[in-house]
Design a protein around this nucleic acid. Structure first.
Length: 271
DNA sequence: CCCGATTCCTGTAGGC
DNA sequence: TGCCTACAGGAATCGG
């Protein structure tokens, strides 16, 4: 399930192979992703060089001459560099063809991902325009979280998973960060003190950075641009560990549903 | 503005 | 062994 660390791992894996290369076209085998893959993508991309590969939230932004390709991995997507003639597997929906004979291939069984093209400034694109700050940026810290949380009565876990508040924190890392900060995920966001938000901000940043360093979390099928899985799963303290002993106190990790998401926490260590 | 529910999709796991 | 159902979840969208 690609969250920020997995998208960043993918970006780092593919960027050196794409930057400076020319696109010679695209093969769209199935355009039915989260939004339809634009018609005529093949012609639109042909002959254009890739200038940069950036990330905003969980979106990968391929800066191409004359526009930007916006890619999203949804929850089952992965991108790999393959030989263009390698036979596509099931769910290999889109190939971006490179002048060196390779292809950037999108594999996405659940088709929650996206391949979009824009000629406007990507930050102004409707999908990107209203996003919160990057959790690894200077502008994100505990004070920011505290001020944004005032007056909010919803659960703190839902609050930190809201992309309008901060981007890139999906279910896995929200659970982990709240455990590391010792905060009960069910607590009302607006009723948590500033000092605890400082801990939470640090925990969010720390868990994301640690996950990036391990190449992301592979639960089932995530692989980076080079096809390798991530190794952060072995560092998860609570996610997916219902009934197992807390790594800190030995009590059972509890599971419940919060905002339609599986939530894992230790009653003893989080309050 | 805020918040919770719904929706998209398919592979996997668990129950019987 | 096979069928059925529940579940996984990013995030837009909608209704209250």
């Amino acid at each position: 399930m690609p969250e920020l660390p997995e998208v960043e791992t993918t970006r780092r894996g593919i960027a050196p192979h794409l930057t400076g290369q020319r696109l010679i076209g695209a093969v769209v085998r199935d355009a039915r992703l989260r939004w339809p893959v634009p018609h005529g993508l093949d012609r639109r991309l042909a002959g254009r060089a890739v200038l940069a590969v950036n990330r905003r939230a969980k979106y990968l932004l391929l800066t191409v001459e004359g526009g930007t390709l916006i890619l999203h991995l949804g929850m089952s997507g992965s991108l790999r560099l393959v030989a263009a003639e390698a036979p596509p597997g099931k769910h290999d929906h889109v190939d971006l063809l490179l002048s060196d004979g390779r292809a950037l291939r999108l594999h996405d069984p659940r088709r929650f991902g996206a391949v979009l093209w824009t000629t406007e400034e990507p930050a102004r694109h409707p999908l990107l325009a209203n996003l919160g700050p990057e959790p690894l940026s200077e502008s994100f810290n505990g004070d920011y979280l505290f001020s944004r949380s005032r007056g909010r009565r919803g659960a703190v876990k839902s609050f930190i998973m809201d992309a309008h508040v901060v981007v890139g924190v999906g279910n896995i890392y929200a659970n982990e960060a709240l455990f590391l900060a010792g905060i009960d995920p069910r607590r009302a966001a607006g009723r948590i003190a500033a000092a605890r938000y400082v801990r939470l901000g640090t925990a969010i940043r720390g868990v994301l950075e640690a996950a990036i360093a391990e190449g992301g979390t592979t639960l089932r099928d995530f692989v980076g641009g080079d096809g390798r899985p991530g190794y952060f799963a072995q560092s998860l303290k609570v996610y997916g560990r219902a009934g197992e002993p807390c790594t800190s106190c030995g009590g059972p990790v509890r599971q419940l549903r919060l905002g339609q998401r599986s939530t894992f926490f230790c009653q003893q260590c989080q309050s």
